[in-house]
Amino acid sequence: MVGPREPIFLGRETYRRRRLIDAMRLVPMAGALLFLLPLLGSGTAPRSTALGGFYLFVVWFGLIFFAFVLVRALARAPGGVGSDPLEPETGATAEDDKTGGGPAPGPR
């Protein structure tokens, strides 16, 4: 809940959030590129399998790390981690679930 506390930064926060989402979208593309990079050199001199495996696991871990950092940053938003400032009514389903969850005695 940002509220009226710092309204002047609201636009800036929305902008930041959009860029975080952009970064989030870029992660799998970068990952696909890096995972497919070894193909470019295939067929030439045989390379060390241990080194190749090391490269793959480093890239892999890098992806996980970036995804983790971005999700942490996104989670700070008032609308929740999955909200996108450009989408109207992002809270619609959450609200929907609340009204639906009310009558049911058990949790979902």
Partner: peptide, 23 residues
Amino acid sequence: GLEFVTIYLGPTLVMVGWWWILR
């Protein structure tokens, strides 16, 4: 050899790219 890893790389890309499809 290392080809087994492809079976895990695909889901990894889908998961870190959750904003595209999974969301």
